[in-house]
Design a protein around this nucleic acid. Structure first.
Length: 240
DNA sequence: AAGACACTCAACCGCACCTGG
DNA sequence: TCCAGGTGCGGTTGAGTGTCT
């Protein structure tokens, strides 16, 4: 059996909604609700199919929809929930009041997926549950291992590079981020992140930077904080 | 200035699930 | 239990806009 289309295609409008159509839809739903999406456009006097009306309402016109850019916290929640739930956008949207599944899906495909797929970050995300479970098993108070000592050398190098603005952002970034997946590095992040990185990125230490380099510095510091919070929240995620 | 290319996001499509008769 | 209609969900598209060369 062939399912009949959700609406009669002939004569129905497609494409972007006009202000007038929005106004009609809002007025109708405010007055009568939306018990039957299929019948709604006919009753409201709209040349749209019910599906189109529902989508327009749920993704754009509903009064509790939150517009504007996603906050760091929202992006972080999406990444964590996506790691746990996969492409279940509606389930993810349920955890973000005022955000729609469509909007979250768009943000994922346009921003977050790229960020997660950066080599260093992909590694961090794919391994962070494994890493945090290892952290539970190991004694964080143990004496410095050879990799920690190596990492300290990286830190020294990055510190000096940050004080030498002639080095490119990519050079600095690679030094700081390439070992982020290493278990010992995660430990050190946990122990030193806030004060240490705040110090490294302080205006004193980057006073010689150009405007562009200041921009890089700012976004890099944001990323550092962001991924640190992802890594340190692995325990919470593993309980989802 | 203009054409090419990349990015964003609203909207559409089709499938799967739910529900009532 | 089956079937048809209604709805929700996730994948995809394409117009509009921004950026680069």
């Amino acid at each position: 059996m062939v399912r009949s289309p959700c609406c009669e295609k002939m004569g129905l409008k497609k494409g972007p909604w006009t202000r007038e159509e929005d106004r009609i839809l809002i007025n109708y739903i405010n007055s009568y609700g939306h018990d039957n999406w299929r019948a709604l456009p006919r009753l409201a006097g709209l040349l749209r199919c019910g599906k189109s009306c529902r989508l327009r309402w749920t993704n754009y016109l509903k009064p509790d929809i939150k517009r504007g850019n996603f906050s760091r916290e929202e992006e972080q929640t999406i990444i964590e929930l996506h790691a746990a739930l996969g492409n279940r956008w509606s389930a993810i949207a349920a955890q973000l009041p005022g955000r729609t599944d469509n909007e979250i899906k768009n943000v994922w495909h346009t921003h977050l997926k790229k960020r997660v797929n950066k080599p260093e970050n992909r590694c961090a995300v794919s391994n962070f549950q494994q890493i945090t479970s290892k952290l539970k098993e190991e004694d964080v108070e143990s004496s410095p291992s050879s990799s920690e000592i190596n990492y300290s050398a990286h830190v020294q190098t990055s510190y000096s590079q940050l004080n030498s603005p002639q080095h490119s952002y990519s050079e600095i970034s690679s030094v700081i981020t390439t070992d982020k997946c290493d278990l010992q590095v995660v430990k050190l992040f946990r122990e030193t992140e806030e004060d240490f990185w705040s110090d490294i990125f302080s205006s004193e230490n980057t006073a010689g930077f150009t405007g562009v380099e200041q921009g890089y510095k700012s976004s890099m510091y944001d990323d550092m904080q962001f991924w640190f919070s992802i890594l340190t929240r692995g325990d919470e995620l593993s309980e989802i």
